[in-house]
C-alpha cells in the first residue's frame, strides 16, 4: 500500500507529538533520583524489567524511528526530485528504520530477561 504525502505528514506530526510525551516520561525517570545514581547498572536493569517501562521504551523507539527517518526522507527529497532518487531514499529510510527498531527491540527484550 502506498500512502499519500498528506497521510505521511499526519503520521509525522502524530509520532512527533506522541514522542514528546513518552520521552518526557523517560527523562522524568532519570530525574526522580540523582542523575548518576539513575544510570547505575542495577537501577537501569530494574527499569527494563518493569513491563510498563519496557513498553514505554519500545514506544519511544518506534515513534522516534518513524518520525526521525521520515524527517530524513523529507530532507533528502527536498534536495533532489526524480523517481529513482525518491524511491531510493524511501527504501533506504524504511530499511534503516526497521533495522534500528529491530536492534533496539533486541536490547529491550534481552535486558528485560536479565536477572
Amino acid at each position: 500500500m502506498i500512502l499519500k504525502e498528506s497521510q505521511i505528514m499526519k503520521i509525522h506530526y502524530i509520532t512527533g507529538i506522541a514522542a514528546l510525551f513518552v520521552v518526557a516520561v523517560h527523562i522524568i525517570m532519570r530525574l526522580v533520583m540523582p542523575f548518576s545514581m539513575s544510570l547505575e547498572y542495577e537501577n537501569v536493569i530494574a527499569n527494563y524489567q518493569n513491563i510498563a517501562y519496557a513498553v514505554l521504551l519500545e514506544s519511544i523507539l518506534v515513534l522516534i524511528a518513524i518520525h526521525g527517518f521520515n524527517g530524513l526522507r523529507i530532507i533528502l527529497i527536498e534536495f533532489r526530485q526524480n523517481i529513482a532518487w525518491e524511491n531510493g531514499v524511501t527504501v533506504f529510510t524504511l530499511v534503516a528504520m526497521i533495522a534500528l527498531i529491530a536492534y533496539g527491540t533486541r536490547t529491550i527484550i534481552v535486558a528485560n530477561g536479565l536477572g
Binding site: 527494563y48 533486541r106 536490547t107 534481552v110 535486558a111
Partner: peptide, 11 residues
C-alpha cells in the same frame, strides 16, 4: 541512533 547503540551495552 547512537543512544540505541550505547544502551545496547546493557546486554
Amino acid at each position: 541512533v547512537g543512544h540505541v547503540i550505547e544502551t545496547s551495552s546493557l546486554v
